[in-house]
């Protein structure tokens, strides 16, 4: 009963959860970012198990590549005290933990015996071609709107992060 697919799922899930737990427990900020890369790469493996190869490639490119690097830039450009966490266990953290645990238990009650009698899918056959066809036929308007969102985010990020000296006085130019 222990197929290779199941073993791969267990290994990837353990790596993902281990990365998340390391994110919570490490003390140095850069180590936390490196730990979260483990989680992102493992999630890409999970996507391969779910026959979403294109999404796995996108996950590696965007999350493990772009977002991790941009977070490292954010850490580099700001002065961080190396030990990020305050000493001691506050009651606030305990209540947060209990709240998150209660949320997790409540959702787990809903999903632990969930099962669908689904027919086998054909998602793994020409996965990228299927996504492309869906994007350019059914989802063409959201796809084009995504470009507007990315443009607005680009312009907004530049305006927010720019030094605004010389913006007020006309004599600078």
């Amino acid at each position: 009963m222990l197929s290779g697919e199941f073993i791969a799922f267990i290994a990837l899930a353990l790596a993902a959860i281990m990365g998340g737990v390391l994110l919570l427990n490490l003390t140095k900020v850069v180590h936390m970012v490196v730990a979260i890369v483990f989680t992102f790469v493992s999630i890409a493996g999970i996507y391969v198990l779910l026959s979403a190869e294109f999404l796995a490639a996108v996950q590696i490119l965007i999350y493990s590549g772009a977002i991790t690097i941009i977070m490292l830039f954010g850490i580099m450009l700001t002065k961080h005290n190396d030990e990020s966490e305050a000493k001691g266990i506050g009651w606030r953290k305990v209540f947060m933990f209990l709240g998150v645990l209660a949320f997790g238990a409540a959702v787990y009650i809903g999903i632990y015996d969930l099962d669908f009698a689904s027919e086998p899918s054909e998602l793994h056959v020409k996965n990228t071609e299927q996504i492309g066809l869906a994007l350019y036929s059914d989802y063409i308007i959201p796809f084009e709107l995504t470009s507007v969102v990315l443009l607005v985010a680009l312009v907004g990020a530049i305006i927010l992060a720019r030094k605004d000296d010389g913006g007020k006085g006309e004599d600078k130019k």
């Binding site: 996950q59 994007l135 059914d138 969102v149 907004g156 992060a161």
Partner: peptide, 21 residues
């Protein structure tokens, strides 16, 4: 999977704007 792609695109935009803020 298409919805997950849109979610990834919006998440990338959110990360950039969050870092800028």
């Amino acid at each position: 999977q298409v919805f997950a792609l849109f979610a990834i695109a919006v998440a990338a935009a959110e990360a950039a704007v969050g870092l800028a803020i």
